[in-house]
Amino acid sequence: QAPETKIVDKSRVACDGGEGALGHPRVWLQIPEDTGWVECPYCDCKYVLKGSKADAL
């Protein structure tokens, strides 16, 4: 199944896999201003900063 994409309001987000005990260790991710998105290294969930150029795609 394809990784999930989430639109977020802040450039710093936490990801834990979203499945409680079945998820992964919580990691904090920083969305770079130049790209407007970041992917979780564990679950490949893509976080897109709302209003960024990546959000316009």
Rank of each mutant, 00 (worst) to 15 (best):
V48Q: 03
V38A: 02
A21H: 09
G20P: 04
P41A: 04
V8A: 04
A14Y: 14
S52K: 01
L49H: 04
V48H: 01
Y47G: 06
Q1S: 14
D34H: 09
T35H: 08
G17C: 05
A21I: 11
L22T: 10
Y47Q: 03
E19M: 07
C43W: 06
Q30W: 12
G17Y: 01
P3W: 12
G17D: 05
T5Y: 15
P32H: 06
D16L: 07
P25D: 10
R26S: 04
Q30C: 10
P41F: 01
G17E: 03
Q30H: 10
A2C: 15
A54C: 09
G36L: 02
Q30Y: 13
P41K: 02
V38C: 01
D34W: 06
A56I: 14
Q30R: 09
W28T: 01
A14N: 04
P25N: 07
E4Y: 15
C15R: 00
D16A: 07
L57P: 11
I7D: 07
K50Q: 10
A56D: 10
E19A: 12
P41L: 03
L57N: 12
K6E: 10
R12D: 13
E39L: 14
E39N: 11
V8Y: 00
G23A: 15
D55I: 01
V8L: 01
G17R: 00
L57G: 12
S11R: 12
P25K: 11
G23M: 11
L57M: 11
K50V: 09
E33M: 08
Q1H: 15
K10D: 13
K53F: 08
A54E: 07
V48F: 04
H24Y: 04
G51V: 04
K53V: 12
L49K: 08
C45P: 01
G20Y: 03
L22K: 13
Q1R: 14
C43R: 01
T35W: 05
D34G: 06
K10E: 12
A54Y: 09
D44L: 15
K10S: 14
A56S: 13
R12Q: 13
P41Y: 03
D34S: 09
A2Q: 13
A2L: 14
P25C: 06
K53L: 10
K46P: 01
L22W: 06
G18Y: 06
E4R: 15
K53S: 11
V27C: 06
C45S: 15
C43Y: 05
K50F: 04
G20F: 06
K6R: 11
P32I: 07
D44Y: 15
G51Q: 06
T35Y: 06
R12H: 11
V8F: 01
A21G: 12
T5F: 15
A14Q: 08
D55C: 06
D44P: 14
C45G: 15
K6A: 10
H24L: 02
V48G: 00
G23R: 14
P25R: 11
S52D: 09
K10H: 14
A14C: 12
D55Y: 00
L49I: 06
T35D: 08
K50T: 06
V48K: 01
V13I: 11
Y42G: 07
G18Q: 08
C45K: 15
V38H: 01
A56G: 11
G51H: 04
P41R: 03
A56Q: 14
R26Q: 09
G23N: 13
G20H: 07
G51T: 05
C40W: 07
G36Q: 05
H24G: 03
A54G: 08
K6M: 13
C45M: 15
I31S: 02
A54P: 05
K6V: 15
P3G: 13
D34E: 10
G18V: 07
C40I: 06
V13C: 08
G18F: 08
I31Q: 02
E4L: 15
T5V: 15
I31F: 02
T35L: 12
P32K: 04
E33V: 09
D55G: 00
C43K: 00
C40N: 06
K53G: 10
I31T: 03
T5Q: 07
K46V: 14
W28S: 01
L49D: 07
W37E: 06
K53Y: 09
C45W: 15
C43S: 02
I31W: 01
E4P: 14
G36T: 03
L49N: 07
V38M: 06
K50I: 09
E33Y: 09
G51F: 03
A54N: 06
Q1G: 12
Y42F: 12
R26W: 07
V48W: 03
A14H: 10
K10Y: 12
T35V: 13
S11T: 13
W28Y: 10
Q30M: 12
G23E: 10
A2K: 13
C40K: 07
E39D: 09
E19Q: 09
Y42C: 09
K46W: 05
C45Q: 15
A54S: 07
V27T: 06
L29P: 01
T35R: 07
G20E: 03
V27N: 01
